[in-house]
Design a protein around this nucleic acid. Structure first.
Length: 249
DNA sequence: AAGAAGGACAACCGCCCGAGG
DNA sequence: TCCTCGGGCGGTTGTCCTTCT
Protein backbone atom coordinates (compact mmCIF):
# COMPACT_ATOMS: atom_id res chain seq x y z
CA UNK A 1 0.00 0.00 0.00
CA UNK A 2 1.45 3.35 -0.99
CA UNK A 3 1.45 6.36 1.20
CA UNK A 4 -1.39 8.75 1.20
CA UNK A 5 -0.87 11.87 -0.89
CA UNK A 6 -0.05 15.05 0.99
CA UNK A 7 -3.25 16.64 -0.26
CA UNK A 8 -6.33 15.85 -2.26
CA UNK A 9 -5.09 16.61 -5.74
CA UNK A 10 -8.60 16.60 -7.15
CA UNK A 11 -9.68 19.44 -4.91
CA UNK A 12 -6.72 21.79 -4.98
CA UNK A 13 -5.85 24.28 -7.64
CA UNK A 14 -2.84 23.55 -9.77
CA UNK A 15 -0.88 25.40 -12.41
CA UNK A 16 0.32 28.98 -12.52
CA UNK A 17 -0.24 31.18 -9.48
CA UNK A 18 -2.40 34.26 -9.79
CA UNK A 19 -1.29 37.62 -8.33
CA UNK A 20 -4.09 37.29 -5.76
CA UNK A 21 -2.80 33.92 -4.59
CA UNK A 22 0.72 35.30 -4.39
CA UNK A 23 -0.52 38.16 -2.27
CA UNK A 24 -2.45 35.85 0.05
CA UNK A 25 0.57 33.62 0.57
CA UNK A 26 3.00 36.48 0.97
CA UNK A 27 0.91 38.38 3.46
CA UNK A 28 0.16 35.27 5.50
CA UNK A 29 3.82 34.27 5.78
CA UNK A 30 4.93 37.81 6.51
CA UNK A 31 2.43 37.96 9.32
CA UNK A 32 2.56 34.44 10.74
CA UNK A 33 5.60 32.77 9.25
CA UNK A 34 5.31 29.27 7.89
CA UNK A 35 4.62 27.88 11.34
CA UNK A 36 6.79 24.92 10.45
CA UNK A 37 3.88 23.25 8.75
CA UNK A 38 3.38 23.75 5.05
CA UNK A 39 0.60 21.21 4.81
CA UNK A 40 -1.81 23.18 6.97
CA UNK A 41 -0.59 26.58 5.78
CA UNK A 42 -2.75 26.90 2.64
CA UNK A 43 -5.94 26.28 4.61
CA UNK A 44 -4.98 28.87 7.20
CA UNK A 45 -3.98 31.33 4.51
CA UNK A 46 -7.20 30.82 2.61
CA UNK A 47 -5.50 29.21 -0.37
CA UNK A 48 -6.86 26.26 -2.28
CA UNK A 49 -3.38 24.92 -2.96
CA UNK A 50 -1.26 21.95 -1.98
CA UNK A 51 1.13 22.74 0.86
CA UNK A 52 4.07 21.64 -1.20
CA UNK A 53 3.00 23.96 -3.96
CA UNK A 54 2.90 26.85 -1.47
CA UNK A 55 6.33 25.99 -0.19
CA UNK A 56 7.76 25.89 -3.71
CA UNK A 57 6.12 29.15 -4.66
CA UNK A 58 7.47 30.89 -1.58
CA UNK A 59 10.99 29.51 -1.79
CA UNK A 60 11.44 29.92 -5.53
CA UNK A 61 9.50 33.07 -6.26
CA UNK A 62 7.98 35.07 -3.41
CA UNK A 63 10.79 35.05 -0.88
CA UNK A 64 12.00 38.63 -0.42
CA UNK A 65 15.70 37.87 -0.88
CA UNK A 66 15.31 36.22 -4.28
CA UNK A 67 17.76 37.57 -6.82
CA UNK A 68 16.39 38.04 -10.33
CA UNK A 69 18.20 38.60 -13.59
CA UNK A 70 20.99 36.88 -15.43
CA UNK A 71 23.82 34.99 -13.83
CA UNK A 72 27.21 36.66 -13.68
CA UNK A 73 30.45 35.11 -14.88
CA UNK A 74 31.46 34.73 -11.27
CA UNK A 75 28.28 32.80 -10.55
CA UNK A 76 28.94 30.65 -13.62
CA UNK A 77 32.34 29.78 -12.23
CA UNK A 78 30.93 28.91 -8.83
CA UNK A 79 28.26 26.70 -10.33
CA UNK A 80 30.74 24.88 -12.55
CA UNK A 81 33.18 24.42 -9.75
CA UNK A 82 30.60 23.09 -7.33
CA UNK A 83 28.96 20.90 -9.96
CA UNK A 84 32.32 19.30 -10.56
CA UNK A 85 32.71 18.54 -6.89
CA UNK A 86 29.16 17.79 -5.86
CA UNK A 87 27.24 16.81 -8.95
CA UNK A 88 23.61 17.79 -9.31
CA UNK A 89 23.11 18.79 -5.70
CA UNK A 90 21.42 21.99 -6.64
CA UNK A 91 20.30 23.04 -3.19
CA UNK A 92 23.87 23.02 -1.91
CA UNK A 93 25.17 24.78 -5.00
CA UNK A 94 22.44 27.40 -4.69
CA UNK A 95 23.35 27.97 -1.06
CA UNK A 96 26.69 29.32 -2.26
CA UNK A 97 24.97 31.89 -4.48
CA UNK A 98 23.25 34.64 -2.59
CA UNK A 99 19.63 35.00 -3.60
CA UNK A 100 19.59 32.12 -6.05
CA UNK A 101 17.32 29.11 -5.64
CA UNK A 102 18.06 25.53 -6.42
CA UNK A 103 15.43 25.63 -9.14
CA UNK A 104 17.09 28.66 -10.69
CA UNK A 105 20.50 27.05 -10.68
CA UNK A 106 19.16 23.78 -12.01
CA UNK A 107 17.31 25.48 -14.85
CA UNK A 108 20.27 27.65 -15.64
CA UNK A 109 22.60 24.70 -15.82
CA UNK A 110 20.26 22.63 -17.96
CA UNK A 111 19.32 25.38 -20.39
CA UNK A 112 22.42 27.54 -20.66
CA UNK A 113 25.55 26.62 -18.79
CA UNK A 114 25.80 23.10 -20.09
CA UNK A 115 25.33 24.32 -23.65
CA UNK A 116 27.74 27.18 -23.13
CA UNK A 117 30.47 24.77 -22.19
CA UNK A 118 29.56 22.52 -25.08
CA UNK A 119 29.77 25.49 -27.47
CA UNK A 120 33.24 26.26 -26.20
CA UNK A 121 34.23 22.72 -26.89
CA UNK A 122 32.75 22.84 -30.41
CA UNK A 123 34.36 26.12 -31.47
CA UNK A 124 37.74 24.95 -30.27
CA UNK A 125 37.31 21.89 -32.51
CA UNK A 126 38.98 19.74 -29.96
CA UNK A 127 38.26 16.06 -30.14
CA UNK A 128 35.61 14.71 -27.85
CA UNK A 129 36.67 12.39 -25.10
CA UNK A 130 36.39 8.75 -26.02
CA UNK A 131 33.90 6.68 -24.11
CA UNK A 132 35.38 5.17 -20.99
CA UNK A 133 37.07 1.95 -22.00
CA UNK A 134 35.93 -1.23 -20.41
CA UNK A 135 38.58 -2.07 -17.88
CA UNK A 136 38.83 -4.38 -15.02
CA UNK A 137 38.47 -1.91 -12.20
CA UNK A 138 36.60 -2.27 -9.01
CA UNK A 139 35.76 0.22 -6.32
CA UNK A 140 35.66 -1.54 -3.04
CA UNK A 141 32.74 -1.29 -0.71
CA UNK A 142 31.88 2.20 0.39
CA UNK A 143 33.17 3.36 3.74
CA UNK A 144 31.91 6.22 5.80
CA UNK A 145 34.96 8.27 4.95
CA UNK A 146 34.78 7.54 1.27
CA UNK A 147 32.33 10.03 -0.08
CA UNK A 148 34.37 10.61 -3.19
CA UNK A 149 33.55 7.15 -4.43
CA UNK A 150 29.85 7.14 -3.77
CA UNK A 151 27.44 6.47 -6.56
CA UNK A 152 24.54 8.75 -7.41
CA UNK A 153 22.07 6.73 -5.41
CA UNK A 154 24.29 6.73 -2.37
CA UNK A 155 24.49 10.49 -2.45
CA UNK A 156 21.06 10.57 -0.94
CA UNK A 157 22.52 9.31 2.29
CA UNK A 158 24.59 12.46 2.56
CA UNK A 159 21.76 14.77 3.42
CA UNK A 160 23.00 15.01 6.97
CA UNK A 161 25.25 15.73 8.68
CA UNK A 162 28.00 15.09 6.16
CA UNK A 163 25.93 16.64 3.43
CA UNK A 164 27.23 20.15 3.96
CA UNK A 165 29.23 21.13 0.97
CA UNK A 166 32.15 22.22 3.08
CA UNK A 167 32.54 18.87 4.74
CA UNK A 168 32.04 17.11 1.45
CA UNK A 169 34.67 19.18 -0.26
CA UNK A 170 36.97 18.75 2.67
CA UNK A 171 36.61 15.02 2.33
CA UNK A 172 37.42 15.20 -1.34
CA UNK A 173 40.38 17.47 -0.79
CA UNK A 174 41.71 15.04 1.74
CA UNK A 175 41.57 12.16 -0.69
CA UNK A 176 43.09 14.21 -3.48
CA UNK A 177 45.84 15.60 -1.30
CA UNK A 178 46.72 12.09 -0.30
CA UNK A 179 47.07 11.23 -3.95
CA UNK A 180 49.14 14.30 -4.63
CA UNK A 181 51.51 13.56 -1.85
CA UNK A 182 52.12 10.14 -3.16
CA UNK A 183 52.22 10.94 -6.83
CA UNK A 184 53.73 14.39 -6.85
CA UNK A 185 50.97 16.10 -8.82
CA UNK A 186 47.29 15.82 -9.56
CA UNK A 187 48.04 15.07 -13.20
CA UNK A 188 50.05 12.00 -12.49
CA UNK A 189 48.59 8.65 -13.32
CA UNK A 190 46.75 7.50 -10.28
CA UNK A 191 44.23 4.90 -9.44
CA UNK A 192 42.14 5.70 -6.42
CA UNK A 193 40.73 2.82 -4.50
CA UNK A 194 38.48 3.04 -1.51
CA UNK A 195 37.72 0.49 1.08
CA UNK A 196 35.74 0.22 4.27
CA UNK A 197 38.33 1.73 6.53
CA UNK A 198 40.51 4.05 4.57
CA UNK A 199 41.21 5.87 1.37
CA UNK A 200 44.35 4.94 -0.42
CA UNK A 201 45.89 5.35 -3.79
CA UNK A 202 48.16 3.28 -5.86
CA UNK A 203 50.18 4.46 -8.79
CA UNK A 204 49.85 3.01 -12.06
CA UNK A 205 49.71 2.96 -15.88
CA UNK A 206 48.64 5.34 -18.58
CA UNK A 207 45.13 5.87 -17.35
CA UNK A 208 43.80 8.08 -14.63
CA UNK A 209 40.77 7.20 -12.60
CA UNK A 210 38.27 9.69 -11.30
CA UNK A 211 35.22 8.82 -9.33
CA UNK A 212 32.17 10.94 -10.02
CA UNK A 213 30.04 11.64 -7.02
CA UNK A 214 26.99 12.69 -8.98
CA UNK A 215 26.60 9.89 -11.45
CA UNK A 216 26.29 6.21 -11.66
CA UNK A 217 29.46 5.75 -13.64
CA UNK A 218 33.03 6.46 -12.87
CA UNK A 219 35.42 7.22 -15.65
CA UNK A 220 38.88 6.64 -16.88
CA UNK A 221 40.80 9.25 -18.82
CA UNK A 222 44.02 9.13 -20.71
CA UNK A 223 46.73 11.71 -20.25
CA UNK A 224 45.64 13.08 -23.63
CA UNK A 225 42.07 13.58 -22.41
CA UNK A 226 43.32 15.38 -19.35
CA UNK A 227 45.23 17.79 -21.52
CA UNK A 228 42.56 18.86 -23.94
CA UNK A 229 39.85 19.23 -21.39
CA UNK A 230 42.02 21.32 -19.09
CA UNK A 231 43.14 23.52 -21.96
CA UNK A 232 39.65 23.88 -23.34
CA UNK A 233 38.04 24.94 -20.14
CA UNK A 234 40.99 26.65 -18.54
CA UNK A 235 40.28 24.48 -15.60
CA UNK A 236 42.72 22.89 -13.19
CA UNK A 237 43.79 19.53 -14.50
CA UNK A 238 42.74 17.96 -11.29
CA UNK A 239 39.06 18.54 -11.88
CA UNK A 240 38.64 19.24 -15.59
CA UNK A 241 38.00 15.63 -16.57
CA UNK A 242 34.93 15.58 -14.45
CA UNK A 243 33.29 18.26 -16.54
CA UNK A 244 33.31 16.04 -19.58
CA UNK A 245 31.12 13.67 -17.67
CA UNK A 246 28.48 16.37 -17.56
CA UNK A 247 28.59 16.63 -21.32
CA UNK A 248 27.89 12.99 -21.68
CA UNK A 249 24.79 13.11 -19.53
C1' DA B 1 2.01 37.93 -41.17
C1' DA B 2 1.67 33.32 -39.64
C1' DG B 3 3.20 29.05 -38.15
C1' DA B 4 7.12 26.28 -36.37
C1' DA B 5 10.89 25.64 -33.46
C1' DG B 6 13.53 26.52 -29.61
C1' DG B 7 14.49 28.66 -25.16
C1' DA B 8 13.42 29.98 -20.48
C1' DC B 9 11.56 29.05 -16.34
C1' DA B 10 7.62 27.98 -13.31
C1' DA B 11 5.48 24.16 -11.45
C1' DC B 12 4.65 19.36 -10.55
C1' DC B 13 5.97 14.52 -9.42
C1' DG B 14 7.84 10.96 -6.93
C1' DC B 15 11.21 9.55 -3.95
C1' DC B 16 14.00 9.64 0.32
C1' DC B 17 14.92 10.97 4.97
C1' DG B 18 14.27 12.32 9.75
C1' DA B 19 11.14 13.17 13.46
C1' DG B 20 7.77 11.75 16.34
C1' DG B 21 4.06 8.83 17.99
C1' DT C 1 10.89 -1.28 16.36
C1' DC C 2 7.62 0.02 13.17
C1' DC C 3 4.72 3.24 10.93
C1' DT C 4 3.10 7.70 9.43
C1' DC C 5 3.77 12.29 8.22
C1' DG C 6 5.85 16.41 6.53
C1' DG C 7 9.95 18.57 4.60
C1' DG C 8 13.25 18.63 1.18
C1' DC C 9 15.37 17.28 -2.97
C1' DG C 10 16.41 16.25 -7.99
C1' DG C 11 14.26 15.11 -12.26
C1' DT C 12 10.84 16.10 -15.47
C1' DT C 13 7.02 18.35 -17.65
C1' DG C 14 4.14 22.18 -19.10
C1' DT C 15 3.48 26.69 -20.64
C1' DC C 16 4.60 31.02 -22.25
C1' DC C 17 7.61 33.91 -24.91
C1' DT C 18 10.90 34.88 -28.47
C1' DT C 19 13.16 33.98 -32.68
C1' DC C 20 13.37 31.97 -37.05
C1' DT C 21 11.64 30.53 -41.58
Amino acid sequence: MGRAPCCDKANVKRGPWSPEEDQLLRSYIEEHGTGGNWISLPRKAGLNRCGKSCRLRWLNYLRPDIKRGGFTDEEDDIICSLYIQLGSRWSIIASHLRGRTDNDVKNYWNTKLKKKLMATYTTNQTPPPPPPPAVDFEVNSIGTDSIIAMSGKDRRHLHSPLSTSSSLMAEQRDVRSENNEQEGSAASSTVVTVDENSSSSSGGGAMEYFSWPAGEDDMLLTEFDMGWISELLATPREVAPLISHAFAN
